[in-house]
């Protein structure tokens, strides 16, 4: 009980500690202790401002998702760089309305960020009542294929992880 009262948000505390260690640029007793103090103090002081903490249901899947997104960022950037670098072929841009099935704010944020970082797509506008996300695609022929790919590659794993 005492642990739960002192650490209301364990993940946030851990992240704060890591960020402090990174900021001070050395892994020493001093930076770890100071990071631990900050990691305990800041969540206690700011607790009332935070929304409900997202619950990670499948941590392993989250790791796999992160790795996949990292790899996709790399490949996507090479693709986009290639598309930009050849001016002789005009890309075929498109606006796509993507129907959302995710419910929670946090996972929607993650999905939108992922979309913006990966292959030729940028999330432009989120509509909460219609539950849809407006996406600008850099180069596509088939809008349905884009929607399907996003659903199977990103939204389904996110839904399994968080909802």
């Amino acid at each position: 009980m005492l642990i739960k009262r002192c650490l209301p948000r364990p993940i946030l505390s851990l992240i704060l500690m890591l960020v402090w260690i990174m900021l001070s640029d050395v892994i020493s007793y001093g930076s770890v202790i100071m990071g631990a103090i900050l990691g305990i103090a800041i969540p206690l002081l700011t607790q009332r401002f935070w929304d409900a903490q997202p619950v990670v249901k499948k941590p392993l899947l989250l790791i796999r998702y992160t790795l996949r997104v990292m790899l996709d960022i790399l490949i996507a950037n090479l693709e986009v760089a290639w598309l930009i670098a050849r001016p002789w072929r005009r890309p075929r841009p498109a606006f796509v309305e993507y129907p959302l099935t995710l419910q929670r704010d946090f996972s929607i944020t993650l999905l939108a960020s992922t979309i913006s970082l990966t292959p030729g797509t940028i999330s432009a506008n989120l509509r909460l009542d219609g539950r849809s996300l407006l996406i600008h695609v850099l180069d596509t022929d088939d809008e349905q294929a884009v929607i399907d790919e996003i659903y199977h590659r990103y939204e389904r794993p996110l839904m399994e992880i968080y909802e």
Binding site: R90, R92, P93, A94, F95, V96, E97, A112, S116, I122, S123, A124, N125, R127, L134, H136, E143
Partner: peptide, 23 residues
Amino acid sequence: HLLAKVALHQKLPSDTSTTGAPS
């Protein structure tokens, strides 16, 4: 995301080859 929103808000014209119109 925010910049795209600003562009939609200011109704910037999109290229003629764009399929699908922004809402």
